[in-house]
Simulated scan of single mutants.
Amino acid sequence: MYAKKSLWVAAGLAGAAVAVRMARTPGAASSAHRWLAVTVNCEPEDLRPDKLPSPLQEYGERIETRISAAPADRGTELAVRFRQPPPELARSVPARLAGQDPRQDLRRALRESKALLEAGEVLVPDEPTTHDTPGGKVIGLFSRRASGEGVL
């Protein structure tokens, strides 16, 4: 029985080593420089890089913008990315959990821009109705994190 557990631990450590090596490859570094995109319900000619909504205008020359027709005539694809990728420390897991990853703010600005273009305002959900319990604190943490990552 002990030999089986040792085998599983060794396999897990080998898998972790492969994952760490993959994370440090040049391809993984370029993923930090990928485009963030949303599909907006408007025509491509209605959207211009010099007339973006205010959440994206605040970034000025720090971002690149790409506007194209969405597949299957479903509106316009608005994509943005930083001209210079954020430093690796700013993209770390602790920075993401603390809400200090600059890509989280860019994601939020992109979602707010979509809302402004489609609805004319940014709709904000109500605060969760949780009590000050351990479970409620976990729900609150996930809810705050979701606004930066775009997912819960």
Score class of each variant (00 low, 15 high):
Pro86Ala: 08
Gly99Val: 05
Ala28Ile: 07
Leu110Ile: 05
Gly135Ser: 09
Leu56Glu: 00
Val18Phe: 11
Arg91Trp: 00
Glu77Asp: 04
Arg144Ile: 05
Arg96Val: 00
Ile139Ala: 10
Ala19Ile: 13
Val9Arg: 13
Met22Ile: 13
Glu61Tyr: 01
Leu117Gln: 11
Arg108Cys: 05
Asp126Ile: 03
Glu88Tyr: 01
Gly27Ser: 14
Ala3Gly: 08
Gln84Glu: 15
Ala69Lys: 09
Pro49Lys: 04
Val122Ser: 02
Thr65Ile: 11
Arg66Gly: 11
Asp105Cys: 04
Ala98Val: 02
Arg103Asn: 06
Leu56His: 00
His33Thr: 09
Thr76Pro: 12
Ala28Arg: 08
Gly60Ala: 12
Arg96Ile: 00
Glu45Asn: 02
Asp46Arg: 11
Lys4Ala: 14
Leu7Thr: 12
Ala16Asn: 07
Leu117Pro: 09
Ala3Phe: 15
Arg74Asp: 08
Leu56Ala: 01
Gly120His: 11
Gly27Ile: 14
Arg24Gln: 07
Glu45Val: 03
Gly15Gln: 06
Ala29Pro: 01
Arg81Thr: 03
Pro134Glu: 14
Ala146Gln: 15
Ala70Glu: 07
Asp126His: 09
Gln84Gly: 05
Met22Val: 14
Arg62Glu: 08
Val20Thr: 10
Glu88Thr: 08
Arg48Thr: 11
Val80Lys: 02
Asp105Gln: 12
Glu45Ala: 02
Ser31Cys: 10
Val122Asn: 03
Glu149Pro: 01
Arg74Cys: 05
Asp105Ile: 00
Leu141Asp: 13
Ile63Tyr: 03
Gln84Leu: 09
Pro125Lys: 14
Ile139Gln: 11
Thr76Gly: 10
Val138Leu: 12
Arg111Ala: 05
Ala79Phe: 07
Arg96Ser: 03
Val124Phe: 10
Ala70Asn: 09
Gly99Gln: 10
Ala98Lys: 08
Val151Pro: 02
Leu56Met: 07
Leu117Val: 12
Ala23His: 13
Pro94Gln: 05
Asp132His: 10
Ile139Ser: 04
Ala70Ser: 11
Pro102Asn: 03
Arg24Thr: 04
Arg111Met: 05
Gly148Leu: 11
Leu47Ala: 07
Glu43Tyr: 05
Asp105Met: 08
Arg91Asp: 01
Ala79Ser: 15
Tyr2Leu: 12
Gly75His: 11
Val124Arg: 14
Val80Asn: 04
Val93Gln: 06
Pro49Trp: 00
Glu43Ala: 07
Leu141Glu: 13
Pro55Gln: 12
Arg62Val: 02
Gln57Met: 15
Pro125Phe: 12
Asp46Cys: 07
Ser31Phe: 14
Leu89Val: 07
Lys137Cys: 01
Arg83Trp: 08
Trp8Lys: 12
Pro85Asp: 06
Trp35Cys: 09
Leu141Cys: 06
Cys42Ile: 10
Ser54Cys: 04
Ile63Gly: 02
Cys42Trp: 02
Leu52Gln: 03
Glu43Phe: 03
Thr133Ser: 08
Ile63Arg: 02
Arg96Gly: 02
Ser6Asp: 15
Ala37Gly: 06
Leu36Glu: 15
Ala16Lys: 06
Pro128Thr: 04
Val93Pro: 03
Glu77Ala: 05
Glu88Lys: 07
Pro85Gly: 06
Ser147Trp: 14
Ser30Arg: 15
Gly136Glu: 05
Gly27Asn: 15
His131Leu: 05
Gly60Arg: 06
Ala37Tyr: 05
Tyr2Met: 09
Gly60Pro: 00
Val20Ile: 14
Leu141Phe: 11
Gln100Pro: 00
Val20Phe: 04
Pro94Ala: 03
Asp46Ala: 12
